[in-house]
Simulated assay, not measured.
Amino acid sequence: MLWIIVLFFVLHWYLSLFAQTFFLHRYSAHKAFTMSRGWERFFFIFCYITQGSSYLSPWAYGIMHRIHHAYTDTEDDPHSPSFDKNLMAMMWRTKKMYAGILQKQIPVEEKFTKNVPDWRWFDLMANSGLSRLLWIGVYVWFYIVFAPSLWFLLLIPIHAAMGPIHGVVINWFAHKYGEVNHEQDNTSKNLFKVDWLMFGEGYHNNHHKYPSRTNFATHKGEFDFCYPIILLLSKLKVIQMAK
């Protein structure tokens, strides 16, 4: 049954990552393309299914990410290695910022909320403690049924926090390590030449240079694995590319 566990883990990693980079990041935060309200609701549900217990509200994520771009590497940045002493401190500050935006306890300038997709009751349901516990219960059940050893239960925390783990790979490591294609007044870097791990998100320096660009690859030898899927969805009329 090991192959089932490997398949489940890989699918959860990449489907959750696709939901984040395609819908939350490129669509919700940057409006790199548009889609109908019906497809928008479809991808809300897609995010919930693929992210599970680590579901991130497209509305709160989109706002927080816009703030990140506006105040990169300053004390107003929701997540910056320059202002957090370690990785866990940054994750905790990001969590508090996200929760404050979601619950509308933090005042946000109107420029950061414009055209961000909002499905209020669904976001609150998907972010509830009960929903997160139910998803973790699904992961535990799956491993008890299919894992060849109970040692595999140690993977449960990764499944439970998949979204934040994806976020910290970029928000911490891609501001500390890697290469710089485009000199800017921030610490953003590219983690990989061919980004097979983060579905294009690893081209963080490229992205900070061209925030609304649909294809995060900008140099020869780079390949954004999410971009061909975006092109396919455009051809299928699911989305409309922004000019």
Rank of each mutant, 00 (worst) to 15 (best):
W59K: 01
R120E: 11
A242E: 12
F46M: 13
A161R: 09
G163N: 11
M64N: 00
F8R: 15
F33N: 13
F8I: 15
I229R: 12
R213N: 03
I239R: 06
W92N: 05
S234R: 15
D84H: 09
H25W: 14
Y143F: 11
Y143H: 09
I101K: 08
S82V: 08
G163S: 14
T113C: 02
W121Q: 06
I170L: 08
D84P: 08
P78V: 01
L24G: 13
Y48W: 06
G163V: 05
K189N: 03
F152H: 09
I158Q: 07
N127R: 03
I230C: 09
P58N: 06
H207W: 01
M198V: 11
I63R: 00
D185R: 01
S16N: 13
L155H: 10
A60C: 08
H166L: 05
P81R: 00
R66Y: 00
T94V: 13
L130C: 08
G178N: 05
M35F: 11
N206K: 01
C226P: 11
Y139G: 02
R93Y: 08
R41G: 10
S128D: 05
L130A: 12
W135E: 10
E75T: 02
M90G: 06
F22I: 14
R213L: 10
E183H: 06
L87Y: 02
A19Q: 15
L150H: 08
L191S: 01
P164M: 05
W172N: 04
I5L: 14
V238C: 14
T21K: 14
L24H: 15
I230K: 04
H204I: 10
S131A: 10
Y61W: 07
G163H: 07
D185I: 02
A147Y: 01
F33Q: 15
E75I: 00
L150I: 08
P78Q: 01
F173G: 09
K193H: 10
W59S: 06
F43D: 01
G129Q: 07
W3I: 14
T218I: 03
D195L: 00
L2V: 14
Y143D: 10
Y177G: 11
H12N: 15
R120D: 06
N86Y: 07
M198L: 13
T74C: 02
A99K: 10
S131H: 04
T214C: 10
R132T: 10
K95E: 12
H79Y: 01
K237L: 12
W172F: 05
K193G: 11
F199N: 03
V116G: 00
T214S: 10
G38Y: 12
V168H: 12
L236V: 15
R41Q: 11
A160R: 02
S234K: 13
H25S: 15
K243V: 15
L154E: 13
F152A: 09
M64H: 00
K104Y: 06
W3E: 12
D118R: 07
I5D: 10
I63G: 02
H79Q: 04
I67C: 01
N127A: 05
F152V: 08
